[in-house]
Design a protein around this nucleic acid. Structure first.
Lengths: 190, 190
DNA sequence: TGATGCATGTAAGCCGTTACATGATTGT
DNA sequence: ACAATCATGTAACGGCTTACATGCATCA
């Protein structure tokens, strides 16, 4: 389980409230980890009890007050310990692949629409990632700061993770094209 | 949740016991769905109660008897209904990506070994998939049967799912090379 | 003698999803 | 007037993981 660790990383990048974390999990962190606000609030509470994070009440005008969390020493230590702990490469879980194999016992052509929908989602995500890359990593000041500063490491590592998301979406689009071509060979006119 | 449906697909391809299903989930089905024997036995029992599958006692010599399951009409209908139900494209969950972004706040070079281990796992899986493709889909009788038979659909769809696994592993290996090159730039000699 | 494979399970606990709930403010 | 955004939660249910448990057969 890495939700706690994903939260630690996000709070190290920038402190924030549970609500703000939920926003981030819909965007950048969400490229490789999803979480709803319910999960986040529950885990934040546990992390606060364990002394991993500290909360600060931030009064706001025209808005509800918020509890801004930041990482405590114990949290930093927990993250470091997890980083040094080997993890097993995850296995994939593709509902769609189950459906594709299952289609052999039903009507393969009925899956075409579904696969096209998925393909469109992956195209959208790819466009979104590419826009983010353009905005955050190819600006006029890209590489303009001194090399090898911690900030550079943070940026470079964020960038390489984003490139992973881009590679994933491209691979999926290519594969779904392959799937569509295969399904087309077992259409209703056969 | 698609474990039930993955089991239905597997049992339609070939009836088998809970133990045999667990084996398959370590191999071919495991390319895109994992399950342990505990999950499988529990779900099989529920599916039997719901009339989705039927069990047949098979006495064996020098081995414990086994309960061989096959798909009942209700199970076939449940699968068909699920196949026609749209699902949302899943989001990825990459512990490793969390680690990579977290490494900015620790020692980036300490992750190199871990990433290399993962890369090796993906190389092994790729080799395994390619061997399976060679064995099952490029044999002398590939395409030798009459076109567009149900068996062909089953084979073709299994093959396209396997090609998805191959594409995934190739993508991961390429990305992990990218990650290693990035981590190397923030090594201890900086 | 010990490890591995065949075969089937129970129990505990955490994780994740869905639904429900509140309440103010801002924009159409 | 209605929807969306900011902000924080509770409750219930089901899924998944880990550990524990049994027992026979085979092979080194």
């Amino acid at each position: 389980m890495a939700l706690e660790h994903a939260i630690l990383v996000s709070l190290l990048e920038k402190p924030g409230s549970g609500y703000e974390l939920a926003r981030r999990f819909e965007r950048s962190i969400g490229y490789f980890w999803t979480a709803t606000h319910q999960q986040i609030y529950r885990v934040l509470k546990r992390m606060e009890n364990d002394g991993w994070v500290e909360a600060r009440e931030v009064p706001q005008q025209r808005r509800p007050d918020k509890r801004e969390y930041s990482v405590a020493d114990l949290g930093r230590a927990a993250l470091s310990s997890w980083l040094h702990d080997p993890i097993e490469p995850e296995s994939v879980r593709h509902d769609l692949a189950v459906k594709i194999r299952g289609a052999a016992f039903d009507d393969p052509a009925a899956l075409i629409r579904e696969v096209e929908r998925h393909r469109q989602t992956h195209r959208d995500r790819l466009a979104h990632y590419l826009a983010g890359e353009e905005r955050d990593f190819t600006g006029p000041d890209a590489g303009a700061t001194a090399p090898d500063t911690p900030l550079d490491a943070e940026r470079e590592l964020q960038h390489v993770v984003l490139r992973g998301g881009i590679a994933y979406e491209r691979m999926m689009i290519g594969w779904l094209d392959d799937v569509l071509a295969t399904l087309a060979r077992f259409g209703p006119d056969h």
